[in-house]
Structures are given as structure tokens and as C-alpha cells.
Write a protein that binds this DNA or RNA. Sequence first.
DNA 1: CATGTTGATGCCGTTTCGGCAGCGGCTATA
DNA 2: TATAGCCGCTGCCGAAACGGCATCAACATG
Lengths: 312, 312
Amino acid sequence: MRFHSPAIQYFHAVRRTGSIRAAARVLNVASSAVSRQILKLEQEVGSPLFERNARGLTLTTVGEMLARHVMNVLQDLDRFRSDVASLSGTWRGTVSIACIESLTESVLPDLIALHRGRARRVSFTTEVKGSSDVLEALSRGEADIGIAMALRHPPDLRQVALKRFRLGAVVSREHPLARRKTVTLEQCLAFPVINALPELSIYHLLQPLIAQLSETPEPAIQANSIDLMRELAARGVGVAFQTQLGIGRLSRDSQLVFLPLDNAGSPVWSDLGIYVRAERTLPAFIESFLQELVRELGERERRENAAYPQTS
Amino acid sequence: MRFHSPAIQYFHAVRRTGSIRAAARVLNVASSAVSRQILKLEQEVGSPLFERNARGLTLTTVGEMLARHVMNVLQDLDRFRSDVASLSGTWRGTVSIACIESLTESVLPDLIALHRGRARRVSFTTEVKGSSDVLEALSRGEADIGIAMALRHPPDLRQVALKRFRLGAVVSREHPLARRKTVTLEQCLAFPVINALPELSIYHLLQPLIAQLSETPEPAIQANSIDLMRELAARGVGVAFQTQLGIGRLSRDSQLVFLPLDNAGSPVWSDLGIYVRAERTLPAFIESFLQELVRELGERERRENAAYPQTS
DNA sequence: CATGTTGATGCCGTTTCGGCAGCGGCTATA
DNA sequence: TATAGCCGCTGCCGAAACGGCATCAACATG
């Protein structure tokens, strides 16, 4: 079922691979065929689509416009295909998710397992990245659904939902702070802390608050893995910071304690956004999963905010 | 600049004309070429796209799905073209508007004249229809912007804005009612009235109210043209009903008087919706006009509701 | 300077496309 | 009931588009 002219498909492959010959390898055709289609396309548009560097091709401004159009066409073709398929028989397809690390502990595995139980023919691809990489992958059409810190998002993305979770300190149950209900940042900084590196968004949430304090925090461990930070905290190495999303299971086993941060009487929020490409209608089976994801995150938001009310 | 495979274009033409030979005439190709492309398309999709009636072709369910995809592709191609064109030079293109009659008196001509003054290369096509026909034309991709009574709209349309205007009685200045500030329906029905036929949405607004009254209205004139109804009212033939949108200019010349309807103490609202296809990103020059349209209608809504406050 | 990789091009066989003419099926009209 | 008109479909054939191969110049790398 390949209706669209080869030029469209070749252009798409060249954009992704950044090279005509690489695209030809992917497409199983000769590089000359790809080269000619690109030249023809440029002649019809009346403007070069790529800048020819010695090491490959880069999109020009017009090229990026065409890339947007081609992406819209191919993604809508996917939707059409899945719509036709769902007419006769069960859903079938792949949901591609790009998300930040805090989801991998329980939210995503729970949801995927649940969804797979209902629709066996739907498969999943997930890729864990930093927040800005998540948005970029989405813009480039390399993922269907993106979950990231709710920063400013580019206009070609649509924020489907925005959920806020309390940022808190994570310590082992033997830690001196473990018996408190909430903690302030100053209280935490009296102990060794496990800091997030700048590539994690937690860093950007905490840095402004730390900067406001008069004291300089004592030397601490730095890491760029939420998983690692959590395990370190469980071993009593120090105080880690994250949302409760990332420690759902461990918290249940009572090895870890989650203490909501209290910043001058008000909570510290971590805003999580769910994104999709704006210029796109999702296939039904992806839309269905998206709705479950939004519902589930909303449910967790409600539960956690009920467990830790606004004022300690 | 025709990148997309001929099959796409031919399918689109066949859908619009409802016949392969007619499509071939429009496309300036032989009917056999069109027939073969359609057959090839059906083979690739694996399902018939049209039902062959003796008198032409009708879309099947799968055909309608493909039509939706093809419309998305071709409309997005238009947007891409206009984006490229706007890179080098002025805007150029056609805004196609489908709207109901009440806009033709002042809103639309004013706006188009204003916009043409700023962007000469943008031309306009307008088609006046009933509300449901407006939505249908929009769904079929025969118009870019639709303005209609805000009924339930199909899911493939997006309601950009919703503006409410007071329905009122329209009489000549010599009419006995002309000196009132507001009127009730009962007061109007004591005089000859000019009724809207069911094809006008005013009919559906007033009918439920009339049905509630005990009296049966006296024999009246019926018409399906807002223009005609207004002119009849100006000649003292009777009481017409419409929103003030349709009588802006005549009212200013003081030949006609607009009396907001008062229904048991509350106004009678006429809801006007502005619609576009949901699965579409508008070209910049259309988006620009759309924004002006929304702003202007919002302005009129504000002015009129200020001129005729809620309670008389 | 040698080597590998890049995109572009000329040549040629294959595939696809479109135009022409004619087929059978259907409707409307006389 | 006969006929004229329109419908979509199908061989046939020439033209155009496409893809594969070999090769070229330009550039980067070592």
C-alpha cells in the first residue's frame, strides 16, 4: 500500500539519514535513483531543499517546510492504514513513546502491561531521554507520544495534558529525616545530598532554590540517573530529590521514604507534560493509549496530592 | 509543483465529480488513465473505494477514509506552497468562505474590503448557504472557513469561535411597535409577521417559542431570504425576525428599527459559530483573515450586547 | 599523498503511464 | 421495444519515468 510518489519517501529517508547514499541503503535502491528524485523535487519546488556539505546533506529553510509537509502526509497515511485495518479485525500497530526517566519505574510499565493485556496486537517502543530531547524526537516524527517536564514547547507540539507532582526528598527509612512529614531544603542540606546533574530537570527545579540559601551545601554525590540516585538513597548514602512517581514500588516496600519538600510554606512542583505533534490526527489505537496515559497520570496526581496535602 | 502520485489527484477529482469520465474531462486526460489509477489504488488498499452505480461512482466506507486522507494531504500541500511563496514576496492565494446569509450585509463585505486593502494578492470566494450546507461544504473541503449557526458540528470540524447575538424583531420606523425598547413574541404576533421558512435557522430558533404560546399566530408571509424579509419589513409589510448583524446599515439610515426579543424576561440568543476543518493547518494568509474575522465578530458581539443590555 | 566517502551524471533496460478505440451494461426517451 | 447517450473497463502501443550500473569530480581523513 504505497500510494505516494517515490520522491516523497526518498526525501523522507534522506532527511532522516542525512545522506543520499545512506538513504539508498535503507530503501534498497541505487543511490542514483535517490539523487535524481531529490533533484527533481528541488526543480519542482524551485529552490534547493538541502545544503550539500562534503559529509552529507542538511535541510534548507524550504527543505524544513517540505519536511513538515512530508511528515504530515506520512503520519496521516499511517493513521489511514490503521483506520482501514481496524475495520476488519483487531487493532495492530506500534505506539512509540519518548519519555523522561521518572516514568519508567511504575507508570509506564504498569500502563503498557495493562494495555497489552487488552490489545495484544499493539506493540510498544519506548525511548528514555532528557526533556528537551523528548520534544525534539517528537518534532522530528520519531515518536508518537512524548512525556517530559513541561517547559516551553515548540509550536508544532500540542500539550495534551499537564500534571503537577510534588518534588520531595527521598531517604532510607533509617535516615534521621525519615520520621518527619515534610522537609525544607535547608534541613536536607544539613546532610549529604545526592544532586542531579544539569541534564536532569530536577537540577533546574532545585538550583534556583539552593541559590537563594545563604549556606553553601556540603560536598555531595552527583548523578544523572534517577534510578541510581534512588538506589543510593536506599543505601543511606544521602538525600535524593525527585517526585514520588519514580519511587512508587520501593516506597511500598518501605525501604525508602518520600518527604515532600516545603519551600517557605509552599510545595515545590514538578510539572509533567504529555505531548503529541500538533498537526496530526493519531491512529485510533494510539489515541486510546494516550487517553489511558492521561487518565492514569491524573489519577496519580490526585492520589499523591491527597496523600500529601498542601500544608504540612 | 506536483509531487504527489497521479493516483491521489485522480481519486480526488473522481470523488468531487462523482464520475470517472467527468474527472477525466476536468483533469484533461483520457478516462482510461483515470480508471486505471483508481483500480490500482483499490488493489493497493485491498478494498473497493467506490460503488459503481450505473450513473457514476459513490464512495464506500474505505473510500471515505481515503478521501479524508487525500483531503488532508492536498490541503497541507496548499499550505506548504503558500508557506514557500510567503518566503519570497507577498502573500498570494484564495480564501474560500462558506457562510449563512446574515453575514453578507455588512460583516463580510467590510472585512473583505479591509483585508484586500492590506493584501492585494489575496482573493476571496464566498458562497452563501444554509447552516448545515455550510458545515457540509467545509467537511468536503470546498471551503476554508465556515460561518454558520452553532448547531452540533461533526467531529471533523473545529469550532474556532462562538459568538452570540440577540434575536430581535425588525420593523419599519412607522410600525406601532417601533417606539418600544424591546418586544415580546406575543406583542409581535399581534401584527402580521414575516416568518422564516424552515431552511433558515431563525425558524428553528423561533418555532419552539411560538409553540409554547396559546394563541395561534395570524396568517403571515413566509420567506427564505433574509434580504427579502428585511426589505419587506422596511416597507411596513410586517414584523421580521433576525439578529442585528443583518441590518447594520439600514438601521443606521433609520429606515428600520431593531427591537431585541424578550422571552419571559430573558433574551433570545442566536449562536454563530466559526468553523474550520479540524485536521488541517491553515495557510498563513487564511489564518490571518480568520483571526480578523473572529476579532470583528467579537467586537460586534460586544457592541450589540452593550447597546441592548440584558434587561429592558 | 593515498584512500574512502560524498553527490551528480551518462547510458540503457524495465516499468509505468496515458491516449485511442472498442467492449458490454445501464438509463432515459421516443 | 428500439435507440441514443453515458457509464466504466480493457487491449494495444508509443512516450515518459524510473532504477541499476559504472564513473566522475570534490572533499575529508589519515
